[in-house]
Design a protein around this nucleic acid. Structure first.
Length: 527
RNA sequence: GUCCUCGUAGUUCAAUGGAUAGAACAAGAGACUCCUAAGCUCUAGAUACAGGUCCGAUUCCUGUCGAGGACACCA
């Protein structure tokens, strides 16, 4: 229903009638409930622009809003320095609960992305070693982002790009052979070395090792993380099918390449890049960028994605513009969004652990998942924004696993299930909010206000990819429920009140399990 | 040296330019004859520093200090 959008229309309409239709504004959610459910700062903007006292503007506009929004607003209030606060009437909440009970699991499904295809590519760590806590950070993030886009109506695909081509495969081969060119070390290298048969060719050994690492280590960890990819895309495929040659030829025809010192460069600066980029090295081997451009041409031309979101580690920040330029050269400008996840700093025994495949010092995601439940791991990583340089204290993570706030959210769900069981009511028959009109306690209203946010959270996050908003919302909602539970007895003596509260609790259950499922976290009935 | 991302409570993190900067963990206190206390209530505690723009700055701009990352014919 997205009441926020209805309010937007009301305000837009009101502005039109005041001759201010060109004014841009936003409907803000009030942080404190004494300031109503939503607020507008347009009076402050108008006042600033026209040098009028904002209070005067606000008071004048208030009458207009009251008239235009009489079906939605209980009250319109003006407070200094010129905020207009909007209070929703009870009917809005009744409609909301009614809608949740009708739509159940599908409540919150939006049509924002209707008819659009989007791909989220994440993790995509080289198959030269197990997933570390660092490079697996993109797992919960990308998976959840794809889930939310799907919820918002996009046709979504989750993809992992396997870099099974090029120099690092050679390096892996040498490492497994343990010859003088070996660079990687660690238990997994020892393991692969012990499994080695007669093969001596480094590249073939590397290919074999990469296959084992991918299928037995990376995929296993990904599964433990509760992630299911739609596509595992092999870089080698691009070469086997001449897709890299193809894009090199097209770029040449477009006069977007030139030769210099025996290498072929892409004129990326024509697209605003800080430098031109090498596509073919002087030894005639192609660069990673050439493959990546071919890969993205495949995504847009063959698979026809309207949008591709790449979740990368911050160490690739310098490569973003190169790829964007390449994509623009093929006419797919602005169809790529790149999210850079800042690095994870690992602390163990009070010391910073430098993650290095070469030094063999890293903490694998698999090790972590053996000690910490996946729901805890996912919630933990999801709570941090992409820009956060997060500090991960391994000892603390193990100690505090049981104190993770994810249990607070799950417990709210468990409590609801428990009460609903005790109620003896067949909840599958509750499809309407018939009794919500009897609700009037503060805690009940507070809870409904939180439920109202759900669709907004979906919409906002599908638009700005700020996935860390989700766990925060889940905590807020769980908190609102726990307080409600504490202050209001759900199975009250009074039949009307009892049924109203069951309806409210059931609606909360649907939204809670909905948000948890988007985050890839289970909603238990019992704990 | 240039560029990117950061610097918020003891700790880990939040806060579309808005109203009294929020949570969790840690610390301290409290309530329950009542639907599972993994819950509830209360207390204490923070914007690195210096300027600037604005009615209003954690948020935008400049500088300083500090952290991580990038500046390849590596991937």
């Amino acid at each position: 229903m997205l009441i926020r959008n209805e309010i937007y229309k009301i305000v837009k309409n009101s502005l039109k009638k005041e001759g201010l239709e060109e004014l841009e504004f936003q409907v803000l959610r009030s942080r404190e409930k004494k300031h109503g459910d939503y607020s507008l700062n347009i009076a402050l903007e108008i006042g600033k622009r026209n040098k009028i006292n904002p209070m005067e503007v606000a008071n004048k506009f208030k009458d207009r809003l009251e008239k235009e929004g009489k079906k939605v607003f209980e009250k319109v209030e003006v407070l200094p320095p010129g905020f207009i606060n909007l209070f929703l009437n009870h009917k809005c909440f009744e409609k909301l609960i009614d809608e949740v009970l009708q739509k159940r699991e599908s409540f919150g499904n939006l049509s924002l992305g209707k008819g659009k295809k989007v791909q989220v590519e994440f993790i995509s760590a080289n198959p030269t070693g197990p997933l570390t806590i660092g490079n697996a950070r993109g797992g919960p993030f990308g998976d959840t982002l794809a889930n939310i886009l799907k919820k918002a109506g996009y046709e979504t695909e989750k993809a992992y790009y396997i870099n099974d081509y090029g120099k690092q495969i050679d390096t892996l081969g040498h490492s497994v052979l343990k010859d003088e060119l070996a660079k990687y070390s660690g238990e997994y290298i020892d393991f692969l070395h012990s499994r080695l048969e007669d093969e001596k060719d480094p590249y073939k050994v590397g290919k074999w090792a990469a296959y084992i690492i991918l299928t037995q280590m990376i995929k296993a960890t990904v599964e433990k993380l509760n992630i299911h990819y739609d596509e595992w895309f092999s870089e080698s495929w691009l070469y086997e099918n001449k897709r890299v040659d193809r894009i090199l030829e097209i770029l040449k025809q477009k006069d977007l390449t030139y030769e210099c010192d025996g290498a072929i460069f892409f004129k990326a600066m024509e697209f605003g890049d800080i430098r031109n980029r090498v596509l073919v090295k002087s030894d005639k081997k192609t660069t990673y960028l050439a493959g990546d451009i071919a890969y993205h041409e495949y995504k847009f031309r063959d698979k026809k994605f309207d949008k591709v979101i790449n979740v990368w580690g911050a160490d690739h920040a310098g490569d973003v513009k190169g790829l964007e330029s390449g994509i623009e050269a093929f006419g797919f400008k602005d169809k790529l969004d790149t999210i850079l996840l800042q690095f994870v700093t690992i602390l163990q025994d009070g010391e910073q652990v430098r993650m290095s495949k070469r030094a063999g010092t890293y903490i694998t995601m698999d090790d972590l998942l053996n000690d910490v439940p996946v729901d805890v791991v996912r919630f933990f990583f999801l709570q941090k924004s992409a820009n956060t340089h997060l500090n991960f204290n391994l000892d603390l993570a193990l100690d505090e696993s049981e104190k993770n706030p994810v249990y607070y959210v799950k417990y709210a769900h468990v409590r609801i299930c428990s009460v609903l069981r005790n109620s003896g009511i067949n909840i599958s028959k509750i499809k309407k909010a018939k009794h919500v009109k009897f609700i009037k306690e503060e805690r009940e209203i507070d809870l409904m206000r939180e439920l109202l946010r759900f669709e907004e959270i979906i919409e906002d996050t599908a638009n700005d990819y700020e996935v860390h908003r989700l766990p925060q919302y889940a905590l807020d909602l769980a908190s609102a429920f726990h307080r409600f539970y504490n202050d209001c007895k759900i199975l009250d003596e009074d039949k009307k009140i009892r049924e109203a509260r069951i309806e409210l609790a059931l609606a909360t259950k649907f939204v809670l399990s909905n948000i948890l499922s988007i985050m890839g976290i289970s909603s238990p009935d019992k704990m």
